[in-house]
Computed example of a mutant assay.
Amino acid sequence: MIRIAFCTALLFLTQLANAQSAKKPLRVGVVGLVHSHVHGILNKAFRQTGQTDIEIVGIAEPNRELAERFSKQYGYPMSLVYPTIAEMLDKTKPEAATDFGRIVDHKKTVEACAPRGIHVMVEKPLATSFADAKQMEALAKKNNIQLLTNYETTWYGSNHKAYAMADKEKAIGDLRKIVVHDGHQGPKEIGVNKEFLDWLTDPVTNGAGALFDFGCYGANLSTWLMHNQRPLSVMAVTQQIKPDIYPKVDDEGTIILTYPKTQTIIQASWNWPFARKDMEVYGQTGYVFTVDGTRMRIRLKDEKSERNAEATQADAPAADPFAYLAKLIHGETKPDELTSLENNVIVMEILDAARQSAKTGKAVLLKQKL
């Protein structure tokens, strides 16, 4: 009896220890502070009381002045800051790294993290070229790490509800047209900080202007809705409406993707009168529009007019990307298609072709796999 009781107690303590271990925050290293989306993770880690999703164990940022400025703003100690990725990774041993640096540097982050077995989440888009994306994909697969791309729109309940209506419920019939609008008045116009503006408006460090900055959203959502089907062709037109503000890059871009029976139009702009991230999905028998993260407009077969609908945060895979990252790495949720590597390599193929099309004025035909 004593032996049975001892074994039972030991089993209970083991289960309790495992449960407590599973609840430990994900150890995260932040790579770069020059992307303004970094405020999301800094706010969550250092200001959101009671959150147990993540713990920032180190920050790699060579710009000491920028790191000190954010240290004063968020209250983190400067002892967390390291001048290089390698030093931060080796000294702090994070489970995952979140990249808030220049898009062109995403590959360097993967090159540093993958051999160390550290998972990576980068801000959208995945890379500045399709070639870099393929190299990053190979590194991630070779070292068996998660390589995710974060988009704000992944956490919109409206997008997931629209997908469910189109795909699982078949409520609007076969897809015929997808129209995605993304952008704002312009990065300088909305007052992004200098460190962000400097690289965002450089074609080498960002890949393009609005074409990449906001065209990636539509490519990501279209690839998702089309079940990772690559388009047959990519056609893009770009403009410099404000060359005095953005002399090196486009500030207006439109991309047309053709599929066998569907067409996607992506409207990416730094010239919208207001910030927007919305989508129109048309089927043979109805349509569903997303207005923002929750609001929707729907019209189905035999309905005489459209109606409003509401999605909730519960329709999305998680409340925010970092909560999702922690659950994924700890095995508490399944991979999300919008953040997936497979989707985002196709996104980069589309963006690379769009950049080429805008330069040549010709549609780019994508080679189809046999």
Score class of each variant (00 low, 15 high):
Gly191His: 11
Gly361Asp: 05
Tyr151Ala: 06
Ile178Arg: 01
Gly58Val: 01
Phe70Arg: 07
Val364Arg: 02
Tyr82Val: 09
Thr153Val: 12
Gly361His: 04
Lys369Ala: 14
Leu200Asn: 08
His37Thr: 09
Asn228Pro: 11
Phe130Gln: 14
Ala316Asn: 11
Val237His: 09
Thr339Leu: 13
Asp320Tyr: 05
Ile178Cys: 00
Gly286Val: 06
Trp155Leu: 03
Thr201Cys: 13
Thr333Val: 14
Ile190Cys: 08
Val234Asp: 07
Trp224Phe: 15
Thr223Cys: 05
Leu351Thr: 02
Ile245Pro: 02
Asp336Tyr: 00
His160Asp: 04
Pro187Trp: 04
Ala131His: 12
Asp336Glu: 15
Phe322Cys: 11
Gly50Trp: 06
Ala9Asp: 12
Tyr259Ala: 08
Gln185Lys: 12
Thr264Arg: 05
Leu148Cys: 02
Ser79Thr: 15
Leu147Thr: 02
Trp272His: 11
Leu211Gly: 02
Pro273Val: 12
Gln229Phe: 05
Val234Arg: 03
Thr201Pro: 08
Pro243Asp: 02
Arg3Phe: 09
Ile85Gly: 00
Ala162Lys: 07
Ala326Thr: 09
Gln135Ser: 14
Leu341Cys: 06
Thr360Tyr: 11
Gln263Lys: 11
Asp132Ile: 04
Asn18Phe: 14
Ala309Phe: 00
Leu16Lys: 10
Leu16Asn: 11
Thr128Gln: 01
Lys72Pro: 03
Pro115His: 01
Gly215His: 10
Arg116Gly: 02
Val237Cys: 02
Ile266Glu: 07
Thr290Phe: 02
Asp90Pro: 02
Asp99Pro: 06
Thr264Asp: 11
Thr8Gly: 10
Gly157Arg: 06
Thr312Gln: 10
Ile241Phe: 11
Ala323Gly: 15
Cys113His: 03
Gly331Val: 15
Arg307His: 15
Thr294Phe: 04
Leu175Val: 12
Ala45Lys: 01
Asp90Val: 03
Asp213Val: 12
Lys108Pro: 04
Gln185Cys: 10
Ala314Leu: 15
Ala208Trp: 04
Lys194Pro: 07
Gly293Ile: 02
Asp244Arg: 09
Thr238Gln: 01
Trp155Gln: 00
Val345Phe: 00
Pro62Ser: 04
Ala353Leu: 12
Lys44His: 07
Leu300Met: 08
Phe196Thr: 15
Leu257Ser: 03
Pro62Gln: 05
Val38Ser: 06
Gly183Phe: 06
Leu328Arg: 06
Ala17Gln: 13
Glu95Gln: 15
Gly215Tyr: 00
Ile190Asn: 07
Asn308Leu: 13
Lys107Pro: 00
Ile329Thr: 14
Gln263Arg: 12
Lys124Leu: 10
Ala314Lys: 15
Ser305Ile: 15
Glu68Asp: 12
Leu257Pro: 05
Val104Cys: 04
Ile54Asn: 02
Ala358Arg: 03
Thr49Cys: 06
Gly331Ile: 15
Ala131Glu: 15
Leu328Tyr: 05
Asp315Cys: 11
Lys362Glu: 15
Ala45Asn: 03
Ala219Cys: 11
Val192Arg: 07
Ala67Leu: 10
Ile56Gly: 07
Leu328Cys: 13
Ala131Asn: 14
Thr153Trp: 00
Leu13Lys: 09
